[in-house]
């Protein structure tokens, strides 16, 4: 048993232990903090498995936006929790436990049943990497070989925003999402919100740009940009834009819109939907990704900001 195996076993048992503790602990708040730490460790595991693209997403979502959502929700729930005396009956808890245990067992069974070596398209993807002029296989799959799935994912993001906005009351419709955050303009938070975003924007653009040949891409970059935007909003330095803003809506549809337009162009001028002409594949894909990073940043930021609750005046 070499040292790398020991390391993997330790990492796996730490993550499993933390996961079990997160489920077992009674207090929502402690469980949430445990979960934030858990997602950091999972990012380590993804790197160890050589899935750095996934690790980047896990770090950007789990470390940044997910933590903000969960901790904010736990803080709001805390007051409600103190008031409720109601407890789920033993039967309900028992059946929930049985359900979760059987799902885990089914997943474990399915993994053990996989043929060895598992069926994979990875060699084909690597062999055709030159077709788009980009060498990151994940970007090739997402943007070219399975471009349709990625486009529909962006439409799902748009639907999520529509869903959040539809929670607004009639009076607030068209107004600004979320509360107006306030903090001392000379305080620590405002200081951070002035210092960090310039660096963060550079990192976000870098992650998008490096995604052509190395792990990275529009979603990870967009999540970083969204975090920076949210930091400025939380520090009270900027307000959320009113949802009736035409600019905002244009940015929200820019990514899927351009993707769809280029896809239809492939159907019209080329052989199939979303087929890129070989000479222009890389510029076209980069163009889509630039539009997408803006859409993703705006969408994630607005999802966290919440439903419109103040009129725009």
């Amino acid at each position: 048993m070499n040292i790398a195996t020991v390391f993997e076993i330790v990492l796996a048992s730490v993550v499993l232990g933390l996961a079990i503790w997160t489920i077992a602990v009674a207090e929502t708040y402690s469980a949430t903090v445990g979960f934030v730490a858990y997602s950091l460790l999972v990012a380590l595991i993804w790197v160890r498995l050589d899935a750095v693209d996934v690790a980047l997403t896990e770090a950007a979502i789990g470390g940044g936006l997910g933590g903000v959502v969960l901790l904010g929700a736990a803080a709001r729930l805390r007051d409600a929790e103190a008031l409720t005396v109601e407890q789920a009956s033993p039967i309900v808890r028992m059946s929930a436990a049985i359900l979760s245990a059987s799902i885990t067992a089914a997943l474990a069974f399915a993994i053990l049943l996989l043929p060895d070596p598992a069926p994979t398209l990875a060699p084909t993807v690597v062999a055709n990497a030159g077709a788009t002029g980009m060498t990151n296989p994940v970007t090739n799959v997402l943007m070219a070989f399975r471009g349709m799935d990625t486009m529909l994912e962006k439409v799902v993001l748009l639907l999520a925003i529509v869903g959040v906005w539809s929670l607004a009351s009639d009076r607030a419709w068209g107004g600004r999402p979320g509360p107006r955050h306030q903090a001392d303009p000379n305080g620590v938070l405002a200081f951070l919100a002035r210092l960090l975003p310039p660096a963060g924007i550079v990192v976000g653009v870098y992650i998008l740009w490096t995604g052509a040949d190395h792990p990275g891409g529009a979603f990870q970059g967009g999540a970083v940009l969204a975090s920076m935007w949210l930091l400025v909003i939380m520090a009270g330095l900027a307000d959320t834009p009113p949802v009736s803003s035409r600019w905002l809506r244009l940015i929200l549809v820019a990514g899927p819109g351009l993707f769809l337009a280029i896809g239809l162009g492939g159907l019209w001028l080329g052989p199939a939907f979303l087929s890129y002409p070989a000479a222009f594949a890389k510029p076209l894909i980069l163009g889509i990704e630039v539009a997408m990073i803006l859409t993703i940043a705006a969408t994630l930021g607005l999802l966290l900001a919440g439903a419109p609750e103040r009129s725009s005046q």
Partner: peptide, 19 residues
Amino acid sequence: SIWMLALLAGATVSQLIAR
């Protein structure tokens, strides 16, 4: 730059939590 960012994060967070 990673270390610089971590320094900034540590300094800010310790101030906020301490207050």
